[in-house]
Design a protein around this nucleic acid. Structure first.
Lengths: 201, 201
DNA sequence: GAATGTGAAGGCTTTCACAGCG
DNA sequence: CGCTGTGAAAGCCTTCACATTC
Protein backbone atom coordinates (compact mmCIF):
# COMPACT_ATOMS: atom_id res chain seq x y z
CA UNK A 1 0.00 0.00 0.00
CA UNK A 2 2.80 2.38 0.89
CA UNK A 3 4.51 1.49 -2.37
CA UNK A 4 1.45 2.49 -4.39
CA UNK A 5 1.35 6.00 -2.95
CA UNK A 6 5.10 6.46 -2.86
CA UNK A 7 5.20 5.72 -6.58
CA UNK A 8 2.59 8.42 -7.14
CA UNK A 9 4.58 10.92 -5.11
CA UNK A 10 7.77 9.91 -6.91
CA UNK A 11 6.17 10.43 -10.32
CA UNK A 12 5.10 13.87 -9.21
CA UNK A 13 8.68 14.59 -8.24
CA UNK A 14 8.15 14.89 -4.51
CA UNK A 15 11.46 14.41 -2.67
CA UNK A 16 10.36 13.46 0.84
CA UNK A 17 7.22 12.39 2.64
CA UNK A 18 6.48 12.43 6.36
CA UNK A 19 4.76 9.62 8.21
CA UNK A 20 1.90 12.08 8.61
CA UNK A 21 1.51 12.50 4.88
CA UNK A 22 1.78 8.79 4.14
CA UNK A 23 -0.74 8.04 6.86
CA UNK A 24 -3.26 10.41 5.34
CA UNK A 25 -2.79 8.93 1.88
CA UNK A 26 -3.14 5.36 3.12
CA UNK A 27 -5.85 5.92 5.70
CA UNK A 28 -3.69 4.94 8.68
CA UNK A 29 -1.96 6.75 11.53
CA UNK A 30 1.52 8.24 11.53
CA UNK A 31 2.63 5.90 14.34
CA UNK A 32 1.49 2.91 12.31
CA UNK A 33 3.45 4.05 9.29
CA UNK A 34 6.62 4.47 11.33
CA UNK A 35 6.27 1.08 13.05
CA UNK A 36 5.56 -0.67 9.76
CA UNK A 37 8.54 0.80 7.98
CA UNK A 38 10.87 0.44 10.95
CA UNK A 39 10.27 -3.31 10.81
CA UNK A 40 12.38 -3.42 7.65
CA UNK A 41 14.93 -0.75 8.52
CA UNK A 42 15.52 2.92 9.27
CA UNK A 43 14.65 4.64 6.04
CA UNK A 44 13.65 8.09 7.32
CA UNK A 45 15.59 11.20 8.23
CA UNK A 46 14.57 12.87 11.49
CA UNK A 47 13.18 16.30 10.95
CA UNK A 48 12.68 15.61 7.26
CA UNK A 49 10.66 12.50 6.63
CA UNK A 50 11.23 9.59 4.25
CA UNK A 51 13.11 9.96 0.96
CA UNK A 52 10.42 9.08 -1.56
CA UNK A 53 12.46 7.67 -4.40
CA UNK A 54 14.83 5.73 -2.19
CA UNK A 55 12.05 4.24 -0.08
CA UNK A 56 10.15 3.24 -3.21
CA UNK A 57 13.18 1.26 -4.37
CA UNK A 58 13.60 -0.31 -0.92
CA UNK A 59 9.97 -1.43 -0.77
CA UNK A 60 10.11 -2.85 -4.28
CA UNK A 61 13.09 -4.89 -3.25
CA UNK A 62 11.49 -6.04 0.00
CA UNK A 63 8.39 -7.13 -1.89
CA UNK A 64 10.50 -8.95 -4.45
CA UNK A 65 9.23 -6.83 -7.33
CA UNK A 66 12.55 -6.22 -9.08
CA UNK A 67 12.26 -9.52 -10.90
CA UNK A 68 9.59 -10.77 -13.26
CA UNK A 69 7.08 -13.25 -11.87
CA UNK A 70 5.46 -15.70 -14.21
CA UNK A 71 1.83 -16.32 -13.42
CA UNK A 72 -0.45 -19.00 -14.77
CA UNK A 73 -4.18 -18.48 -14.71
CA UNK A 74 -6.45 -21.45 -14.16
CA UNK A 75 -9.89 -20.78 -15.62
CA UNK A 76 -10.29 -18.63 -18.72
CA UNK A 77 -13.19 -16.66 -17.32
CA UNK A 78 -13.97 -13.12 -16.37
CA UNK A 79 -11.81 -12.93 -13.26
CA UNK A 80 -8.68 -14.03 -15.04
CA UNK A 81 -9.45 -11.60 -17.84
CA UNK A 82 -9.92 -8.78 -15.35
CA UNK A 83 -6.52 -9.50 -13.85
CA UNK A 84 -4.77 -9.75 -17.20
CA UNK A 85 -6.41 -6.52 -18.39
CA UNK A 86 -5.29 -4.63 -15.35
CA UNK A 87 -2.37 -2.40 -16.28
CA UNK A 88 -0.71 -2.48 -12.89
CA UNK A 89 -0.49 -6.25 -13.16
CA UNK A 90 2.09 -6.31 -15.93
CA UNK A 91 3.55 -2.99 -14.87
CA UNK A 92 4.60 -4.52 -11.60
CA UNK A 93 6.36 -7.44 -13.16
CA UNK A 94 3.65 -10.10 -13.26
CA UNK A 95 3.55 -11.84 -16.62
CA UNK A 96 0.87 -14.26 -17.71
CA UNK A 97 2.74 -17.38 -18.76
CA UNK A 98 -0.33 -19.44 -19.56
CA UNK A 99 -4.09 -19.77 -19.32
CA UNK A 100 -5.83 -23.09 -18.75
CA UNK A 101 -9.43 -24.21 -19.00
CA UNK A 102 -11.47 -27.40 -19.06
CA UNK A 103 -14.05 -26.10 -21.54
CA UNK A 104 -13.24 -27.51 -25.02
CA UNK A 105 -14.90 -24.43 -26.53
CA UNK A 106 -12.36 -22.18 -24.85
CA UNK A 107 -9.27 -24.31 -25.42
CA UNK A 108 -7.31 -23.08 -28.42
CA UNK A 109 -8.96 -19.67 -28.39
CA UNK A 110 -6.69 -16.65 -28.20
CA UNK A 111 -6.66 -14.95 -24.84
CA UNK A 112 -4.70 -11.74 -24.71
CA UNK A 113 -1.27 -12.67 -25.99
CA UNK A 114 -1.65 -16.30 -24.98
CA UNK A 115 -3.79 -19.17 -26.17
CA UNK A 116 -6.03 -21.08 -23.80
CA UNK A 117 -4.55 -24.49 -23.12
CA UNK A 118 -6.00 -27.73 -21.85
CA UNK A 119 -6.00 -28.29 -18.11
CA UNK A 120 -4.12 -31.57 -18.67
CA UNK A 121 -1.18 -29.66 -20.10
CA UNK A 122 -0.39 -27.92 -16.83
CA UNK A 123 2.04 -30.52 -15.54
CA UNK A 124 3.99 -30.81 -18.76
CA UNK A 125 4.15 -27.04 -19.22
CA UNK A 126 5.39 -26.52 -15.68
CA UNK A 127 8.30 -28.91 -16.09
CA UNK A 128 9.36 -27.03 -19.21
CA UNK A 129 8.99 -23.52 -17.81
CA UNK A 130 8.16 -23.24 -14.16
CA UNK A 131 5.64 -20.64 -12.99
CA UNK A 132 5.77 -20.25 -9.27
CA UNK A 133 2.48 -18.31 -8.97
CA UNK A 134 -0.95 -19.60 -9.99
CA UNK A 135 -4.27 -17.74 -9.98
CA UNK A 136 -7.22 -20.00 -9.37
CA UNK A 137 -10.31 -18.61 -11.07
CA UNK A 138 -12.59 -21.64 -11.31
CA UNK A 139 -15.77 -22.74 -9.50
CA UNK A 140 -15.56 -24.14 -5.98
CA UNK A 141 -16.20 -27.70 -7.16
CA UNK A 142 -12.93 -29.42 -7.90
CA UNK A 143 -10.83 -26.45 -6.82
CA UNK A 144 -8.97 -28.42 -4.16
CA UNK A 145 -8.21 -31.15 -6.68
CA UNK A 146 -6.68 -28.64 -9.09
CA UNK A 147 -4.69 -27.09 -6.26
CA UNK A 148 -3.27 -30.48 -5.34
CA UNK A 149 -2.12 -30.95 -8.93
CA UNK A 150 -0.58 -27.47 -9.02
CA UNK A 151 1.28 -28.10 -5.79
CA UNK A 152 2.52 -31.45 -7.05
CA UNK A 153 3.71 -29.72 -10.22
CA UNK A 154 5.80 -27.30 -8.19
CA UNK A 155 3.65 -24.17 -7.85
CA UNK A 156 4.72 -22.29 -4.73
CA UNK A 157 2.06 -19.57 -4.43
CA UNK A 158 -1.66 -19.53 -5.20
CA UNK A 159 -4.15 -16.69 -5.38
CA UNK A 160 -7.55 -18.32 -4.94
CA UNK A 161 -10.78 -16.77 -6.19
CA UNK A 162 -12.81 -19.97 -5.84
CA UNK A 163 -15.34 -19.49 -3.04
CA UNK A 164 -14.15 -22.42 -0.98
CA UNK A 165 -11.60 -23.32 1.67
CA UNK A 166 -8.35 -24.57 0.15
CA UNK A 167 -5.62 -26.48 1.98
CA UNK A 168 -1.97 -26.50 0.94
CA UNK A 169 1.21 -27.93 2.45
CA UNK A 170 3.37 -25.66 4.62
CA UNK A 171 5.79 -24.65 1.88
CA UNK A 172 3.08 -23.24 -0.39
CA UNK A 173 1.69 -19.72 0.01
CA UNK A 174 -2.04 -19.21 -0.38
CA UNK A 175 -4.19 -16.10 -0.48
CA UNK A 176 -7.94 -16.26 -0.93
CA UNK A 177 -10.32 -13.59 -2.18
CA UNK A 178 -14.02 -14.24 -1.84
CA UNK A 179 -16.15 -11.59 -3.47
CA UNK A 180 -19.47 -12.97 -2.25
CA UNK A 181 -18.20 -12.93 1.31
CA UNK A 182 -17.22 -9.27 0.96
CA UNK A 183 -20.74 -8.41 -0.11
CA UNK A 184 -22.17 -10.41 2.76
CA UNK A 185 -20.00 -8.37 5.07
CA UNK A 186 -21.63 -5.23 3.71
CA UNK A 187 -25.06 -6.80 4.15
CA UNK A 188 -24.18 -7.44 7.78
CA UNK A 189 -22.98 -3.89 8.31
CA UNK A 190 -26.15 -2.46 6.78
CA UNK A 191 -28.36 -4.79 8.80
CA UNK A 192 -26.62 -4.22 12.13
CA UNK A 193 -25.53 -0.62 12.28
CA UNK A 194 -23.36 -0.04 15.31
CA UNK A 195 -21.77 -3.48 15.52
CA UNK A 196 -18.89 -2.43 13.36
CA UNK A 197 -16.75 0.67 13.02
CA UNK A 198 -17.93 2.61 10.08
CA UNK A 199 -16.33 5.41 8.14
CA UNK A 200 -12.97 5.95 6.48
CA UNK A 201 -11.33 2.79 5.22
CA UNK B 1 -17.55 -18.39 6.19
CA UNK B 2 -19.37 -20.58 8.67
CA UNK B 3 -22.56 -20.04 6.68
CA UNK B 4 -20.95 -21.35 3.50
CA UNK B 5 -19.99 -24.67 5.08
CA UNK B 6 -23.12 -25.03 7.16
CA UNK B 7 -25.16 -24.74 3.98
CA UNK B 8 -23.11 -27.54 2.46
CA UNK B 9 -23.65 -29.73 5.50
CA UNK B 10 -27.35 -28.87 5.52
CA UNK B 11 -27.73 -29.84 1.87
CA UNK B 12 -26.09 -33.16 2.66
CA UNK B 13 -28.63 -33.65 5.42
CA UNK B 14 -26.23 -33.52 8.35
CA UNK B 15 -28.12 -32.72 11.56
CA UNK B 16 -25.41 -31.38 13.85
CA UNK B 17 -21.82 -30.19 13.62
CA UNK B 18 -19.26 -29.81 16.39
CA UNK B 19 -16.95 -26.84 16.73
CA UNK B 20 -14.20 -29.30 15.87
CA UNK B 21 -15.78 -30.19 12.58
CA UNK B 22 -16.55 -26.59 11.64
CA UNK B 23 -13.02 -25.58 12.56
CA UNK B 24 -11.55 -28.18 10.23
CA UNK B 25 -13.82 -27.11 7.38
CA UNK B 26 -13.03 -23.43 7.82
CA UNK B 27 -9.37 -23.73 8.65
CA UNK B 28 -9.71 -22.34 12.19
CA UNK B 29 -9.63 -23.74 15.71
CA UNK B 30 -12.53 -25.14 17.71
CA UNK B 31 -12.14 -22.45 20.38
CA UNK B 32 -12.33 -19.78 17.72
CA UNK B 33 -15.52 -21.22 16.32
CA UNK B 34 -17.16 -21.32 19.75
CA UNK B 35 -16.10 -17.76 20.62
CA UNK B 36 -17.28 -16.43 17.28
CA UNK B 37 -20.68 -18.03 17.47
CA UNK B 38 -21.16 -17.25 21.17
CA UNK B 39 -20.88 -13.57 20.31
CA UNK B 40 -24.31 -13.79 18.70
CA UNK B 41 -25.95 -16.26 21.08
CA UNK B 42 -25.90 -19.81 22.43
CA UNK B 43 -26.73 -21.91 19.45
CA UNK B 44 -25.10 -25.19 20.40
CA UNK B 45 -26.13 -28.12 22.54
CA UNK B 46 -23.54 -29.43 24.97
CA UNK B 47 -22.47 -32.94 24.20
CA UNK B 48 -23.97 -32.71 20.72
CA UNK B 49 -22.69 -29.74 18.77
CA UNK B 50 -24.54 -27.13 16.73
CA UNK B 51 -27.84 -27.83 14.97
CA UNK B 52 -26.86 -27.33 11.34
CA UNK B 53 -30.17 -26.22 9.84
CA UNK B 54 -31.12 -23.95 12.70
CA UNK B 55 -27.71 -22.30 12.87
CA UNK B 56 -27.76 -21.73 9.13
CA UNK B 57 -31.01 -19.83 9.49
CA UNK B 58 -29.65 -17.84 12.43
CA UNK B 59 -26.52 -16.81 10.55
CA UNK B 60 -28.52 -15.80 7.49
CA UNK B 61 -30.61 -13.57 9.68
CA UNK B 62 -27.59 -12.09 11.46
CA UNK B 63 -25.96 -11.32 8.12
CA UNK B 64 -29.16 -9.75 6.83
CA UNK B 65 -29.49 -12.23 3.99
CA UNK B 66 -33.23 -12.92 4.30
CA UNK B 67 -34.03 -9.85 2.24
CA UNK B 68 -33.02 -8.97 -1.30
CA UNK B 69 -30.24 -6.42 -1.72
CA UNK B 70 -30.17 -4.32 -4.82
CA UNK B 71 -26.68 -3.73 -6.12
CA UNK B 72 -25.53 -1.32 -8.78
CA UNK B 73 -22.29 -1.95 -10.62
CA UNK B 74 -20.18 0.99 -11.68
CA UNK B 75 -17.99 0.04 -14.63
CA UNK B 76 -19.20 -2.47 -17.22
CA UNK B 77 -15.92 -4.35 -17.33
CA UNK B 78 -14.63 -7.79 -16.50
CA UNK B 79 -14.84 -7.55 -12.74
CA UNK B 80 -18.48 -6.54 -12.73
CA UNK B 81 -19.20 -9.31 -15.21
CA UNK B 82 -17.41 -11.85 -13.04
CA UNK B 83 -19.54 -10.83 -10.06
CA UNK B 84 -22.79 -10.91 -12.01
CA UNK B 85 -21.91 -14.31 -13.49
CA UNK B 86 -21.20 -15.81 -10.12
CA UNK B 87 -24.10 -18.02 -9.11
CA UNK B 88 -23.76 -17.51 -5.39
CA UNK B 89 -24.21 -13.80 -5.94
CA UNK B 90 -27.87 -13.96 -6.93
CA UNK B 91 -28.46 -17.10 -4.90
CA UNK B 92 -27.68 -15.16 -1.76
CA UNK B 93 -30.10 -12.38 -2.49
CA UNK B 94 -27.94 -9.84 -4.32
CA UNK B 95 -29.68 -8.49 -7.40
CA UNK B 96 -28.04 -6.32 -10.02
CA UNK B 97 -30.28 -3.28 -10.30
CA UNK B 98 -28.15 -1.43 -12.81
CA UNK B 99 -24.82 -1.21 -14.61
CA UNK B 100 -23.17 2.11 -15.42
CA UNK B 101 -20.26 3.08 -17.64
CA UNK B 102 -18.67 6.17 -19.13
CA UNK B 103 -17.73 4.52 -22.41
CA UNK B 104 -20.28 5.54 -25.10
CA UNK B 105 -19.58 2.26 -26.89
CA UNK B 106 -20.77 0.28 -23.88
CA UNK B 107 -23.77 2.45 -22.98
CA UNK B 108 -26.96 0.95 -24.37
CA UNK B 109 -25.42 -2.51 -24.80
CA UNK B 110 -27.17 -5.42 -23.11
CA UNK B 111 -25.36 -6.71 -20.05
CA UNK B 112 -26.86 -9.81 -18.55
CA UNK B 113 -30.46 -8.95 -17.95
CA UNK B 114 -29.74 -5.23 -17.70
CA UNK B 115 -28.65 -2.58 -20.18
CA UNK B 116 -25.58 -0.48 -19.56
CA UNK B 117 -26.59 3.03 -18.59
CA UNK B 118 -24.80 6.35 -18.67
CA UNK B 119 -22.86 7.33 -15.58
CA UNK B 120 -24.84 10.59 -15.44
CA UNK B 121 -28.05 8.64 -14.91
CA UNK B 122 -26.96 7.31 -11.52
CA UNK B 123 -28.44 10.13 -9.46
CA UNK B 124 -31.80 10.12 -11.21
CA UNK B 125 -32.04 6.30 -11.06
CA UNK B 126 -31.24 6.23 -7.37
CA UNK B 127 -33.99 8.67 -6.46
CA UNK B 128 -36.48 6.49 -8.32
CA UNK B 129 -35.30 3.15 -6.93
CA UNK B 130 -32.64 3.26 -4.26
CA UNK B 131 -29.83 0.72 -4.29
CA UNK B 132 -28.00 0.74 -1.01
CA UNK B 133 -24.97 -1.25 -2.27
CA UNK B 134 -22.63 -0.18 -5.06
CA UNK B 135 -19.74 -2.14 -6.57
CA UNK B 136 -16.98 0.09 -7.87
CA UNK B 137 -15.18 -1.61 -10.76
CA UNK B 138 -13.47 1.30 -12.51
CA UNK B 139 -9.85 2.50 -12.76
CA UNK B 140 -8.25 4.33 -9.85
CA UNK B 141 -8.42 7.70 -11.60
CA UNK B 142 -11.67 9.42 -10.73
CA UNK B 143 -12.79 6.67 -8.37
CA UNK B 144 -13.04 8.98 -5.36
CA UNK B 145 -15.10 11.43 -7.42
CA UNK B 146 -17.58 8.72 -8.37
CA UNK B 147 -17.75 7.57 -4.76
CA UNK B 148 -18.59 11.10 -3.63
CA UNK B 149 -21.46 11.16 -6.10
CA UNK B 150 -22.70 7.74 -4.99
CA UNK B 151 -22.62 8.81 -1.36
CA UNK B 152 -24.44 12.04 -2.17
CA UNK B 153 -27.05 9.99 -4.02
CA UNK B 154 -27.70 7.90 -0.91
CA UNK B 155 -25.60 4.76 -1.40
CA UNK B 156 -24.81 3.30 2.01
CA UNK B 157 -22.30 0.55 1.21
CA UNK B 158 -19.54 0.30 -1.38
CA UNK B 159 -17.40 -2.62 -2.49
CA UNK B 160 -14.33 -1.07 -4.09
CA UNK B 161 -12.17 -2.87 -6.66
CA UNK B 162 -10.39 0.28 -7.80
CA UNK B 163 -6.74 0.06 -6.72
CA UNK B 164 -6.79 3.26 -4.69
CA UNK B 165 -7.58 4.54 -1.25
CA UNK B 166 -11.20 5.71 -0.96
CA UNK B 167 -12.65 7.90 1.79
CA UNK B 168 -16.29 7.91 2.82
CA UNK B 169 -18.27 9.62 5.58
CA UNK B 170 -18.90 7.69 8.81
CA UNK B 171 -22.37 6.46 7.89
CA UNK B 172 -21.18 4.70 4.71
CA UNK B 173 -19.66 1.21 4.73
CA UNK B 174 -16.68 0.54 2.54
CA UNK B 175 -14.77 -2.63 1.68
CA UNK B 176 -11.84 -2.66 -0.68
CA UNK B 177 -10.38 -5.53 -2.67
CA UNK B 178 -7.07 -4.97 -4.41
CA UNK B 179 -6.02 -7.87 -6.60
CA UNK B 180 -2.61 -6.48 -7.48
CA UNK B 181 -1.81 -6.06 -3.81
CA UNK B 182 -2.72 -9.67 -3.14
CA UNK B 183 -0.25 -10.80 -5.78
CA UNK B 184 2.40 -8.52 -4.34
CA UNK B 185 1.81 -10.21 -1.01
CA UNK B 186 2.60 -13.54 -2.64
CA UNK B 187 5.69 -12.05 -4.24
CA UNK B 188 6.82 -10.96 -0.78
CA UNK B 189 6.19 -14.37 0.71
CA UNK B 190 8.14 -16.08 -2.07
CA UNK B 191 11.00 -13.61 -1.78
CA UNK B 192 11.26 -13.72 2.00
CA UNK B 193 10.52 -17.25 3.14
CA UNK B 194 10.26 -17.39 6.89
CA UNK B 195 8.89 -13.89 7.50
CA UNK B 196 5.33 -15.09 7.29
CA UNK B 197 3.42 -18.14 8.45
CA UNK B 198 2.99 -20.46 5.57
CA UNK B 199 0.71 -23.40 5.09
CA UNK B 200 -2.96 -24.00 5.59
CA UNK B 201 -5.13 -20.96 5.00
C1' DG C 1 12.05 23.14 15.02
C1' DA C 2 10.52 19.05 12.79
C1' DA C 3 9.84 14.37 12.36
C1' DT C 4 11.83 9.69 13.07
C1' DG C 5 12.58 5.39 15.82
C1' DT C 6 11.16 2.88 19.68
C1' DG C 7 10.31 1.18 24.49
C1' DA C 8 6.16 1.07 27.26
C1' DA C 9 1.19 1.09 27.76
C1' DG C 10 -3.06 -0.02 26.23
C1' DG C 11 -6.46 -2.58 23.74
C1' DC C 12 -7.97 -6.25 21.09
C1' DT C 13 -8.02 -11.25 19.63
C1' DT C 14 -6.87 -15.86 20.24
C1' DT C 15 -6.01 -19.73 23.02
C1' DC C 16 -6.47 -22.28 27.21
C1' DA C 17 -8.82 -24.91 30.34
C1' DC C 18 -12.56 -26.26 32.76
C1' DA C 19 -17.21 -25.87 34.87
C1' DG C 20 -21.65 -27.11 33.42
C1' DC C 21 -25.13 -29.12 30.73
C1' DG C 22 -27.35 -32.54 27.67
C1' DC D 1 -19.12 -39.10 28.42
C1' DG D 2 -18.96 -35.30 24.84
C1' DC D 3 -19.04 -30.85 23.65
C1' DT D 4 -20.48 -26.16 24.51
C1' DG D 5 -19.92 -21.58 26.72
C1' DT D 6 -16.84 -18.63 29.00
C1' DG D 7 -13.74 -16.41 32.40
C1' DA D 8 -8.77 -16.01 32.65
C1' DA D 9 -4.21 -16.04 30.45
C1' DA D 10 -1.42 -15.36 26.73
C1' DG D 11 -0.22 -13.26 22.64
C1' DC D 12 -0.40 -9.80 19.17
C1' DC D 13 -1.07 -5.23 17.23
C1' DT D 14 -1.81 -0.35 17.75
C1' DT D 15 -1.15 3.90 20.05
C1' DC D 16 1.39 6.89 23.05
C1' DA D 17 5.02 9.70 24.19
C1' DC D 18 9.48 11.12 24.18
C1' DA D 19 14.52 10.86 23.57
C1' DT D 20 17.09 11.37 19.49
C1' DT D 21 18.70 13.07 15.30
C1' DC D 22 18.90 16.03 11.31
Amino acid sequence: MYLRYLEDLDTRGQQTASSDELAHLCGTTPAQVRKDLSFFGSFGKRGLGYPVHELTAHLREILGLQREWKVIIIGAGKIGAALANYRGFRQRGFKVAGVYDNDPLKVGQPWGEAIVRRMEDIEADLTREDAPIAVLAIPAEGAQQVVDRLVAAGVRAILNFAPTQITVPPHVNLKSVNMAMELEGLSFALTNPGYLDEGVA
